[in-house]
């Protein structure tokens, strides 16, 4: 997979997501059904369009957009695309590229911090646990005071185990993460 900054974006997306973005005919159905469109700086159909052009400026606009981080992965677009193009998978591929090239929108950093905190918890223990997830998220997002009132209420309901469960195969899990990261850089 040639996914350096000079590679054609449509090819990179095809390799990563198995989607041929050039087949999109811009009907706009993805945008019409997208629950997150109102929070995005590029609508889903614009994302598909910018991925088609081969223009370096469009590529840059896409990888630096907030929109790719706002996708909730609800799959409404994928479900409804008359060309069966899976825009959600395209956005997954664009997020990966954006992160790899250090182009994450400053407005998307909190969302990235949450995903990274989630995966860090899984990498070290084999499972997601709320305490390390929220702790790391606060640290990495800078959002120290968010949801302070929620924690005691969660505790009272037995919904906040303080000691994370660590699986026996945690070295296996670390190996899987390393192998997947190596792939990412290849």
């Amino acid at each position: 997979m040639s996914q350096g900054p000079d590679a054609d974006l449509a090819d990179a997306v095809r390799d990563a997501a198995g989607v041929r973005v050039e087949r999109c005919y811009q009907c706009g159905k993805c945008t019409a059904g997208c629950p997150m469109a109102r929070h995005m700086d590029l609508a889903p159909n614009q994302i598909m369009r910018l991925a088609q052009t081969g223009d370096p400026g469009d590529r840059e606009a896409l990888l630096r957009s907030l929109a790719i981080w706002c996708c909730a992965g609800c799959l409404t677009c994928t479900q409804r695309c008359p060309r069966e193009l899976d825009p959600a998978a395209v956005i997954d591929a664009l997020r990966e590229l954006s992160r790899r090239e250090g182009k994450v929108s400053p407005r998307g950093r909190r969302i990235l911090a949450f995903h990274e905190a989630f995966l860090a918890s899984v990498e070290h223990t084999g499972r997601m646990s709320e305490v390390p997830l929220v702790g790391l998220y606060k640290l990495w997002s800078g959002d120290i005071f968010q949801d302070l009132a929620v924690a005691p209420a969660m505790l009272a309901r037995g919904k906040l185990p303080l000691i994370p469960h660590v699986i026996k195969g945690r070295t296996e899990i670390r190996r899987i993460f390393e192998a997947c990261r190596a792939k990412e850089k290849a």
Binding site: H115, E116, F118, L119, V122, G126, M128, G169, K183, E184
Partner: peptide, 18 residues
């Protein structure tokens, strides 16, 4: 000894991990 499925975070950041 089951492990986490990776949820939204894995497919958002690394499709191999997902």
């Amino acid at each position: 000894d089951w492990n986490c499925c990776g949820a939204t975070a894995a497919h958002s950041l690394n499709h191999d991990l997902a």
